[in-house]
Design a protein around this nucleic acid. Structure first.
Lengths: 207, 207
DNA sequence: GTCCGTATACTCTGCTCCGAGTATTCGACT
DNA sequence: AGTCGAATACTCGGAGCAGAGTATACGGAC
């Protein structure tokens, strides 16, 4: 289980092709109009690379090469039966399990000891601000889409992001307050450590 | 603002060197004993590559090359003043802002329409199970560390992950129930769409 | 005393991925 | 009629990253 899988963009490509044959540029356009580019990293470099790989693995195949007027050629692809199974399995893995990921902020937290506590409190408060901004952004997007008659089901990714950002916000705020009030075990040590360092630096400067 | 930064591992490397000069392998060992490898992707291939880059950018420098017995040479690095500023700025960015990331599950959600609803409900429930498992795992790790006298401050990354996994779990469970009960707008359409497809396939088979 | 596993300390290779660039055409506006 | 910008449809090169591989040394078991 948990087979090695590559770029999720490859899955999105195959998902497009389950609807009908397409050429890569059209897939990109489709994903953008559906707002899927907000959930799946999309850029041309990767797109054509990923299509190449799928072709090699026999999960998609060329259907035809069309030229319309004097525009560049468009290579239209379609999905193979093997591709269909792959979509099924891959998607099942994405929806049925949870892979450990490495968010940037988590990296930051694990290293925050390097900065002085006062600074960290300040930064965390800043972050809370940005998270609130993001929340209103998401609310605006969701409201706009709902207003345009998009069923809520198609906004699940947005709702998901909203839920996580909200939790993130609560956590960050709480952490800032816990450091500030020294309620959190270890903070007094941290503060005195950085107070000493500051003192040392001042002493070094006087020499 | 929001300058392009590379692998967070580079930050961890510099963070290690703010304490004292080290050779790469020792950095890896240090991070592992501190459990930072759970928050920052660490593997030797990347480590040496990242050190190389930092060297080129003048953020760290060689201090000495030691050979102990007939073991391989160890190159010991130290951080430069430019490196110190970089650590400060980078860490401030990680703690003070929130970058949009692309979790796998979000990709899955944005494509779930290609699977039939019953299947999705099943998968989501499976996921809820895994998330619960992860929660107990995290609780166990936190409890063990606390038992060993590790101050809670040093477990902030764990607490963070716990908070997010918890929110994720609640969301996933809720979504499963909303699809099941057809309370969510768009689900009836989705169900009938897949019922039709199934019907089409059956018809196609009969030919 | 020698055998096995683990720890030390990297090195190599190949693939992935990204951002920027290119060339053409169409439509709108002046 | 001419031009400007947006849309179409890719191409390219190089950095970055992961995973597996390599070679030596040490410590304990039998």
């Amino acid at each position: 289980m948990a087979k090695r899988r590559g770029n999720p963009l490859a899955l999105a490509v195959m998902a497009c092709l389950t609807e009908r044959p397409m050429h890569p540029y059209e897939m990109a356009a489709t994903m953008r109009t559906r707002g899927q580019d907000a959930s799946i990293r999309l850029n041309y470099g990767s797109l054509y690379g990923v299509v190449e790989t799928l072709l090699k693995r026999g999960l998609i195949e060329e259907q035809e090469v069309v030229r319309e007027g004097r525009r560049p050629e468009r290579t239209v692809y379609r999905i193979t039966p093997e591709g269909r199974t792959e979509v099924d399995e891959w998607l099942a893995e994405l929806l049925g399990t949870s892979a450990k990921e490495f968010p940037q902020f988590e990296a930051g937290l694990s290293l925050m000891g390097v900065l002085p506590p006062v600074r960290v409190i300040d930064l965390l408060d800043q972050r809370v601000g940005k998270l609130h901004e993001r929340l209103s952004e998401l609310d605006a997007i969701i409201a706009a889409a709902t207003g345009n008659g998009v069923p809520r089901l198609f906004l699940a990714e947005m709702d998901y992001e909203r839920a996580l950002v909200d939790a993130d916000c609560v956590f960050t705020e709480q952490l800032a307050r816990d450091i500030e009030s020294e309620r959190l075990d270890g903070v007094t040590f941290w503060k005195s450590f950085h107070a000493d360092r500051k003192h040392d630096e001042a002493a070094a400067e006087e020499k």
